[in-house]
Every structure is written in C-alpha cells, then in structure tokens.
Design a binder for these strands. Structure first.
Lengths: 151, 151
DNA sequence: TTTTCTGCAAACGATTTGCATACAC
DNA sequence: GTGTATGCAAATCGTTTGCAGAAAA
C-alpha cells in the first residue's frame, strides 16, 4: 500500500470532487513526479514545461498547483525567497515526511527525516484542544559546505 | 535575568552597527512592545501608527521592521496569508520560544511553548553537518472553537 | 557638517482575475 | 451539448527602490 502518487491518484481525487482531468493538470503533476525531492515554484514548473515545448499558460500552472495542493497531492511551502514552492507528497501522510534545513548563507534547502513529532502533536492537542492535522518544521543555519568555506 | 526588549536595547544594537536611532525606528518598536503576542504585518503596523496620528511612510515601516529583524529584535515569519509577519523576541534566545498553531479554518494563529527541540537540533547537526541556529515549527489544524462549531 | 534616513511615487515581481475560446465529460 | 478549464492580458497586492529633502551623529 501507500507508495508514490501516480496519475491514477490524480484521476481519482479529481473525480471525487467533480473536477476535470485535463492535459495541463496531468502535465503539471508529471513535472513533480519527474523531480522527486525538488521544491518547485510556479515559474520553475512553467520554465520546465516551456523547455519541453509543452504549451501551457503561467496562470494555469498557478491554478493547477493550487488545485493539486487542495487535493493533498502537493504541499505548499515558503522558504523566504519571495515565492511559494510546492513538493510532491506520498500516499501515506506518515511516510516520507521530512523537516527542511535552510542554509541562511547559500539558500540551499536540505531535508531531514521527520520523526518524534507525533509526541509533540499529542501534547499540543491535549493541552490546547487544537487538533493537529499537519506540521512544518524549518531549521535555519549553515550547511556543511558553507561552514567549510567560512572556516 | 534576560527579560523583555526595551528601547535601550534598540539603542545599543543600532549603535553597535553604526545605525541611527531615529524617531521612526523607535515608533515601530513601540508598536511591538505594546502588542505582545501579536504577529503584525507591515500594513498592520502602518495602520496602527496612522490611527495614532503618527506620521510615517509605509516604506519606512518595511525598512524599519527589516532592520529590527536584522538586529535580532523582531522575528520574521510567514503564515501563508500572503504577507510577512513579525513578532517581538525576548532578550534570551532560549526564553519564550514557541511554536505556532495555525487554524486552517479561521486562520487564527495560536502559540505553544517550545521545548524538546534542542535534542532534534543536535541530531540534525550530528547527522548532516548542518549547524542549526534557529528553527520555526508550524502546526496546521483546527482550533478548539472551530472544532466546536464543526461538531 | 557629513552621512544616513525618510517620504513619496514609481517600479517590481509574484499571483490573481475577467473574459472569450477550447476542451472534458 | 453543457459546464468547467484554459490562455491571454490586465489588474492586484505586497514589497522594493531611486531620489531629493530632513534629521541623526
């Protein structure tokens, strides 16, 4: 079970909401399937598709990515570089979760396996009544390479 | 010791960087001192000051908040509502740290005491060589009030 | 006095929207 | 066929910037 998101998942989830399975939506999802571990902005995706002679409007890229996020297929996030970025999720919410390590020197974004946050989530709900459904953890600091350069 | 940020802290930190202590910078800091626990955007601060007949330009609000963040007096953050928000910090980096609980229903942002993340930071550095200097944790979910309304 | 800062308005970049056409169902 | 989705261009929104005048040091 679980596993990666496929085009079939897109079909199912769109159908469940009476949304249409269009060429553009498939094309956008394909970019994310082909770029595992990337954090792509709308411009990124638009550029990748234009480079492949795929005809799509920038507004459609924005609309598609927003819809895919609404379907739970993509996750939207901000790394402070002025634009929203998305990454593809997995079928199981518990699988392949990770924190982001953002280098304040070079801007690179690394990933780190996410564990031991369940406990904290439970604690939050018990103490505040806030029902947690998702979380995002960002660490700011200096990546190995920048540390080496900085001495 | 440690304690809250005061106008004197601003004076000291600006002086340490050869920046000038201006009326506008003091005014902006005062808004944050007067609004503990708030996450204010540039427009928010601008609106508050105009409501008090304080004469200041929006661009100056942006520049001041960015500078205060550079001085470590404010912390910049994004909650996905399309603008950057800032909150005032405390003198000690270890004090009064908290996570943010963002209600996906009403948009409210709550706070939760931050502990037990030091361990995770150490783990990150040991395993990746990434030197962590700061972190931000966001939990998405449903606040107590919205849960009650939704049944 | 000298340099930095402010205010204004224009510039900017990311994102959204209106509307006529094209496409999925 | 019917209604939704797309593409384009214009509009919008938050934020940044250039520059002349104002204010710290």
């Amino acid at each position: 079970m679980a596993g990666q998101i496929t085009m079939d998942v897109l079909r199912q989830r769109l159908a469940a909401h009476q949304y249409k399975l269009t060429t553009q939506r498939k094309t956008v999802l394909q970019v994310f399937i082909d770029s595992p571990g990337e954090h792509l902005s709308a411009e990124d995706v638009y550029g990748i598709l234009r480079g492949k002679d795929k005809d799509i409007g920038l507004a459609t890229v924005y609309r598609s990515m927003e819809l895919l996020a609404e379907m739970g297929i993509l996750h939207k996030m901000e790394f402070g570089d002025g634009c929203s970025r998305y990454e593809i999720g997995s079928m199981s919410p518990d699988e392949h979760q990770h924190h982001h390590l953002i280098c304040v020197q070079c801007g690179k974004v690394l990933e780190f396996p996410d564990d031991m946050l369940d406990e904290l989530e439970k604690d939050v709900t018990e103490k505040t009544g806030f029902k947690v459904v998702d979380h995002q953890v960002k660490f700011f600091g200096y990546c190995k390479e920048c540390r080496a350069k900085l001495g």
